[in-house]
Simulated scan of single mutants.
Amino acid sequence: MGSTDGGTFRRMLRKLTSDVEELDARDLAEDAEDSGARAAKDCACGEEVMMLGRIRSVELCPQSAEATLRAELFDGTDGVTLVWMGRRRIPGIEAGRTMRVRGRLSVRDGQKVLYNPYYEICQAQ
């Protein structure tokens, strides 16, 4: 058995014994890396970043003077909160969608945040 066969067997065994969420996170992280995006876990406050991930949740936060739309993006390594100020809804921004986002990373209350990021909704693969 060659080294390729052993690697294939290990990957197959890992898929059989791994948690579905863990496998999904690994696939997301690989897709992000293949696209040239940075891993969220490696990004720091103040950096201009481009990330690729899947939206986990979307919520409208009307507490402030202006409505604020928030979404949690997960790239397989870490979550990032996306915040659009003054927006109640953005067509296509919904849980389960894969997106590429770009902006300057902030940290608020220990959570990574992108305010008013540029975004691109990716087609399902």
Rank of each mutant, 00 (worst) to 15 (best):
M1D: 10
M1P: 03
M1G: 14
G2N: 11
G2C: 08
G2E: 07
G2Y: 02
G7Q: 13
G7D: 08
T8H: 11
T8E: 09
R10V: 15
R11C: 09
L13G: 00
L13W: 12
R14N: 13
L16N: 12
L16H: 10
T17S: 08
S18W: 04
S18V: 05
D19C: 06
D19I: 01
D19H: 12
D19K: 07
D19F: 03
V20A: 15
V20H: 09
E22M: 08
L23K: 00
D24E: 12
A25I: 01
R26F: 01
A29P: 02
A29R: 04
E30C: 01
D31G: 00
D31I: 00
A32W: 02
A32Y: 01
A32D: 00
D34V: 15
A37H: 01
A37G: 02
A37I: 10
R38V: 10
R38N: 05
R38K: 10
A39N: 08
A39S: 13
A40I: 15
A40M: 09
A40D: 01
K41E: 15
D42K: 15
C43E: 06
C43Y: 05
A44W: 07
A44C: 11
C45K: 14
C45W: 05
C45T: 14
G46R: 03
E47Q: 14
E47L: 11
E48K: 11
E48R: 13
M50I: 13
M50A: 12
M51Q: 06
L52E: 15
G53P: 00
G53R: 00
G53A: 05
I55P: 04
I55M: 07
R56N: 09
V58Q: 07
V58R: 06
E59L: 13
L60G: 01
L60Q: 09
C61G: 03
P62V: 14
Q63A: 13
S64F: 11
A65R: 12
A65V: 06
E66M: 10
E66T: 14
E66Y: 08
L69T: 09
L69D: 06
R70F: 09
A71S: 05
A71H: 03
A71R: 03
E72I: 14
E72K: 07
F74M: 02
G76K: 00
T77Q: 02
D78M: 11
D78S: 13
G79T: 13
G79K: 04
G79D: 09
T81K: 07
T81S: 08
L82F: 09
W84V: 06
W84H: 07
M85H: 10
M85T: 15
M85G: 02
G86R: 05
R87S: 06
R87F: 08
R88P: 03
R88E: 15
R89K: 09
R89Y: 12
R89A: 12
P91M: 05
A95N: 04
A95H: 00
A95Q: 08
R97E: 13
T98S: 08
M99Y: 06
R100I: 08
R100P: 05
V101G: 00
V101D: 02
V101R: 04
R102E: 11
R102W: 07
R102F: 04
G103M: 03
R104S: 10
L105M: 12
V107M: 14
R108I: 14
G110P: 08
K112Q: 10
V113T: 08
L114Q: 04
L114S: 03
L114F: 07
Y115P: 00
N116L: 05
Y118R: 15
Y119A: 13
C122E: 15
C122N: 07
C122S: 06
Q123W: 05
Q125Y: 09
